[in-house]
Amino acid sequence: MYIETEYFGRIEISDDDIMTFPEGIPGFEELKRFTLLSIGEDFVNFFLLQSVDRPEISFIVTDPFVIYNGYEVHIEDDDLELLGITSPDTVLTLAIAVIPEDPKDIRVNLKAPVIINVDKKLGKQILQQNESLPIRYYLNRS
């Protein structure tokens, strides 16, 4: 099928590329279908989580385990069930980035990673109880 995207215009994806977020994403609860796109070879660790239904809604996401040493994710039983997760091998964890013009303000949300069961193509942004994880983890500040 073809979908419209803000960054790439009209692109073709297959039904297999569509992931369902049964609860949407906080702030966008009505959007249940997303697809993960590469944003180009130059952006090795970053991907675009694109809404299938709203071209202008997409999130740049990255692998939190790469940017934050010792990152851990905890998924409660009801979420394991919601996402049909039975093995850690099928879990893809992504953190949503906010990318303003000033590189100093580029940040990643480590508190609420997007968890995807790549097997069943089900996803949810899951708030972590861990108090030490920041909602805004700045990549270019130290």
Binding site: I25, P26, G27, F28, I39, D42, F43, V44, N45, F46, E56, I57, S58, F59, I60, I96, A97, V98, I99, P100, E101, D102, P103, D105, I106, N109, K111, A112, Q125, L127, I135, R136, L139, N140
Partner: peptide, 23 residues
């Protein structure tokens, strides 16, 4: 979280270009 998610959908193209360096 909702606020950050909303901001995340309004990323700057110029900012994204600068991400290259980071990756």
């Amino acid at each position: 979280i909702i606020r950050e998610n909303r901001l995340a959908t309004m990323n700057s193209l110029a900012g994204i270009a600068k991400l290259k360096k980071h990756t």
